[in-house]
Nucleic acid binder design. Structure first.
Lengths: 361, 361
DNA sequence: CTGAAAGCGCTTACAG
DNA sequence: CTGAAAGCGCTTACAG
């Protein structure tokens, strides 16, 4: 119930008590031991340039010896801002969420920040007030937004209004460069198109994600563009919108595979839908890749658990999380210049077993 | 950079400014408006019984009108304890982690607590000091531990030493009931055994997880027990230890499936290993469930993406997270009695397509 | 380059 | 049932 070890004996200064039995030391203890004011210790903690090198050294030595770490709550109270970074997300894929968290934590290692997580549902009427309440109450240092909540302009306006720093991860540059990590879904999808075209496919279909996600459009655009480079077009009937889910992918594939002529390849907007395509093909007795080539997007763990192994477009999610958090931290530091540029992420095509030459007609 | 809206005009009380332009109100504002001391407001916030009903009503009305919420940092500083709950985990399965987080967040909804997450690696030499530093520095209100870090007694001793409340989720009652959410992996595994026996299998193999996980033993024990109920024994050669991973599951299955007589059913300690079994069967040209029945454990999302759909044992991960967090909160409240009991969770067998009658010999 | 005073927004310990 | 004083561990604003 109490984070101080046995309270110090009356009259004993914290420094005088043993290492095991002592209560946590404070800035006052450090100041006393270094024979300076606590304000000077505070300057050292906060990397102020206005401290004599000798003084800084002495204080740092004592800090290290005592294992002192300033209390984030006290610091936050005085700063009028906490040392908490929020991750706000509505992506339903567990692996995506966990990788992103890992990346943000990577960037936070060694800092005094902690990560608080906040799933959300933009379709709720209370979404904006809830978020406002959460952020203002916790006085968050900043937030990282992932798709699709990162694409919500009402929300971003709210963040600006309450002066909460943010970084947005999205497939298009929606905002000033300093706040953006842009994933070039476009280019990854174009790679997928070239790959299928180069294998000799001409009857190529696409199942895109829901129109409410920018990534759906980017992936579809990139795919169309990649096909165009090879002199191919995405036919109207081969172009289906689904919902980024297994079931919607399966339904779309079922329709596509009953067309005449039947497509020999399908590019699914994500791996979940690609798994649905597998199922639909199986139901129809079609072999992958013998009768049908399939390419996904995300390179999620299922991609390498499926049979045959799924060719897919990989985004370095963890790196993206790290970069986003770094932008947040560096925003107020000397490295500003570097982080004022937009951060760009290029996906890579991972070729596995699900894509091959089309069947001989 | 500042969480207060336009600073109030000099002389203007917060209450006098408009709703949009006002700075966040504090306990002092409430006290002034209610004509009481801030201590009394504090009592209302903290649900003290020593407040006249009338006073409480008046204060609560004003709190509601102003949308006042006490500052967690200030409160934490005075309490010497933050309003942060830590989730500490080393489970590698993304879906598990995310579901657990969701469950904990479910329990926290409507409270003033927030969730900070902390993946860890028990094999690191700095594990214990790192954790200690993290918990003491943040003055965590409490932590939820999931397997396998929940099984680490050195760590739990550290928590007790620094007086950090905790709840452990594990497959065996390792601790006092008030700190335990116990998952009966034993009973789920016994269900799996009965299911396979009742289908007519006699040559039944098991691939267990690593010995360092208690769940490995519980699942193996339960499985053996279930078989025994049906007059069956788990043969030595049919009993393999693997690592809860895809590759290790595949390797173990490869060995099992080359035995003579070949087992007609395999119970894998988790779904990842079951996926490895699928792969090994496919490599050998064996049909599931025609030649081989497979049962997994976890009922992870892959289970219903695999082909054929995997029969698996399901644990309500999200509920477990919620219950664990509730135990943490209620520990200090009037509901103590109820939460002093051990919380128990029973898994359920989800029968899908991967288990059927054994092939006719 | 350094420090004394006041304050961040709450609660504790004490008193009545 | 209620309140005035002191304090939680830091930083800001000001002064030198």
């Amino acid at each position: 119930m109490n984070y101080r070890k046995k309270p110090a004996a009356p009259g004993a200064t914290p420094a005088a008590t043993s290492d095991t039995g002592r209560k946590r030391s404070t800035i006052n203890d450090i100041a006393r031991m270094a024979n300076v004011s606590k304000k000077t210790v505070s300057r050292v903690i906060n990397d102020s340039p206005f401290v004599k090198e000798e003084t800084r050294l002495k204080i740092n030595t004592i800090i290290r010896e005592l294992g002192f770490a300033p209390d984030p709550q006290a610091r936050g109270l005085a700063f009028r801002r906490s040392f908490l970074i929020g991750m706000i997300y509505d992506n339903p894929t567990a692996q995506y969420v966990v990788n992103m968290q890992q990346g943000i934590l990577d960037a936070m290692r060694g800092t005094s920040f902690e990560l608080v997580i906040r799933p959300c549902d933009r379709s709720l009427a209370t979404f904006l007030p809830d978020m406002r309440h959460f952020i203002e109450r916790q006085k968050l240092f900043g937030v990282v937004l992932t798709p699709s909540v990162s694409e919500d302009d009402r929300f971003v306006r709210l963040l600006q209004e309450i002066d909460c720093p943010y970084v947005r991860i999205a497939s298009v540059p929606l905002d000033t460069p300093a706040t953006m990590v842009v994933t070039h879904d476009f280019s990854g999808a174009a790679d997928a198109a070239r790959h299928l075209a180069d294998l000799g496919h001409e009857l190529i279909a696409h199942i895109s994600g829901p129109a409410s996600f920018r990534s759906s459009h980017e992936r579809r655009r990139g795919f169309t563009e990649g096909l165009a480079e090879r002199g191919l077009k995405l036919r109207r009937t081969y172009d289906r919108e689904a919902g980024y889910t297994f079931d919607s992918g399966m339904a779309a594939a079922q329709e596509l595979l009953s067309l005449n002529p039947r497509p020999t390849a399908i590019f699914a907007g994500n791996d979940e839908m690609a798994a649905g395509v597998y199922k639909a093909a199986r139901n129809l007795g079609l072999a992958i890749p013998g009768d049908l080539s399939v390419v996904g997007f995300d390179d999620s763990p299922v991609a390498s658990r499926m049979w045959p192994l799924l060719t897919s477009v990989r985004l370095p999610i963890r790196d993206m999380g790290r970069m986003a958090a770094e932008k947040l931290f560096h925003k107020r530091t000397e490295r500003r210049a570097r982080n004022d540029d937009v951060t760009e992420v290029i996906p890579t095509l991972v070729i596995r077993e699900s894509s091959a030459r089309p069947p001989v007609a």
